[in-house]
């Protein structure tokens, strides 16, 4: 970066800008793939016209869709429309893709949020515990349990949970969202008892893998950190165990945890497809898998673009969190000291 620019921008701002510049080519590539799918797979004109049509109608539609324009013009229009949230009509449902996605997004986002909450709120304490009391029987139990969590495929976890809690015990629902409440365009399951009950099994299914991963990671990091000199020094100063464990040790395990959680959000989105299929959860994942099954290209293209935008944003946020958590990074970038 030129020196003149360096003086004007704060280091944080420069950092954000450089990250966005790095993300742009990725987004453009994905947009290109989406567009290529949209334009060259299948024949949108034939699909939209149906059985009976005249040549004039066909010509009119081709012009209307801009399919007679050169490739780059079409691509530009596609990006312009995409930025405005305009992805055309679903072949399968003949409704605007943007409406379909807006309808389904709350279900997926609430599910992903609950799964992440399950993973963090249970995974971190379990990790801290197994790190502090390595040889207790409970730690051994947790570790064995985590091995199972890592090797079970998501859909089998879902099926097993349904078998036990819905079929045998009959205490929790096995499909759908229960009753939802409309808050503007957002439909939430948090406000009704059936909605909350419906969230339990899918969230556990989706969060279990992340939970075990976070637990193992926090454990490994705790073991590493507890060996360092500043922990010994904190103990020597006579600080209570709680302050040492949580104030000093846990805080320093956070950087890798943030990375993994950030990266795992992508996996959560991907495996939400599977979870939503098992539990017939009316979210974006189920919409996507139905579209793949029916070759509904506009929905697939829109989903791909949305997901990659989400990934890129998450990566950016993870980088910013680094910046906030690790002072060494701030110093390094701010003063060019490295």
């Amino acid at each position: 970066m030129p020196a003149a620019l360096d003086l004007e921008f704060s280091p944080l701002f420069a950092f954000i800008i450089s990250r966005i510049l790095q993300a742009l080519p990725v987004m453009l590539t994905v947009a290109l793939i989406s567009f290529a799918m949209f334009a060259y797979v299948g024949d949108p004109v034939a699909i939209m016209l149906g059985q009976d049509f005249t040549e004039a109608q066909r010509q009119a539609l081709v012009q209307d869709l801009g399919l007679d324009q050169p490739f780059w013009v079409q691509f530009g229009t596609f990006i312009g429309n995409a930025i405005q949230g305009e992805f055309g009509l679903s072949y399968r449902l003949s409704r605007p893709v943007s409406d379909l996605i807006a309808e389904r997004a709350p279900a997926t986002l609430e599910l992903a949020f609950c799964a992440a909450a399950v993973a963090l709120l249970i995974g971190v304490p379990m990790g801290v515990y197994t790190g502090l009391y390595r040889h207790s029987w409970l730690s051994r139990f947790f570790l064995t349990f985590s091995l199972i969590g890592v090797s079970l495929p998501v859909f089998l976890i879902g099926i097993l949970l349904i078998l036990v809690f819905a079929v045998w015990l009959g205490v929790l629902p096995s499909f759908g969202r229960g009753d939802t409440v409309k808050l503007g365009w957002w439909s939430t399951g948090f406000l009704t008892w059936t909605g909350i009950k419906a969230l339990v099994l899918p969230s556990i299914t989706l969060g279990l893998f992340q939970l075990t991963l976070i637990m193992r990671l926090v454990r490994a990091e705790m073991l590493e950190v507890l060996r360092t000199d500043y922990i010994k020094f904190a103990r020597a100063r006579g600080l209570p165990n709680r302050a040492v464990h949580f104030g000093h040790a846990l805080k320093n395990t956070l950087v890798p945890v943030i990375t993994i959680v950030g990266l795992q959000l992508g996996a959560i989105i991907a495996f939400a497809i599977v979870t939503e299929t098992v539990f017939q959860w009316p979210g974006m994942g189920l919409l996507f898998i139905q579209s793949v099954n029916q070759a509904d290209i506009p929905v697939m293209a829109a989903y791909l673009l949305l997901i990659s935008a989400l990934f890129v944003t998450i990566n950016l946020i993870v980088d910013l969190l680094y910046y906030a958590v690790d002072p060494r990074l701030r110093l390094g970038r701010g003063q060019g000291a490295h």
Binding site: V26, T29, G266, F271, I289
Partner: peptide, 26 residues
């Protein structure tokens, strides 16, 4: 390596799903 980077950003199951979907449509 750029292609690797981009592809590694996406979970592999998603990539496989997309390829399968596109072939199905084509």
């Amino acid at each position: 390596m750029r292609i690797c980077d981009v592809q590694l950003t996406f979970p592999s199951i998603l990539v496989a799903l997309l390829i399968d979907g596109v072939v199905r449509a084509a």
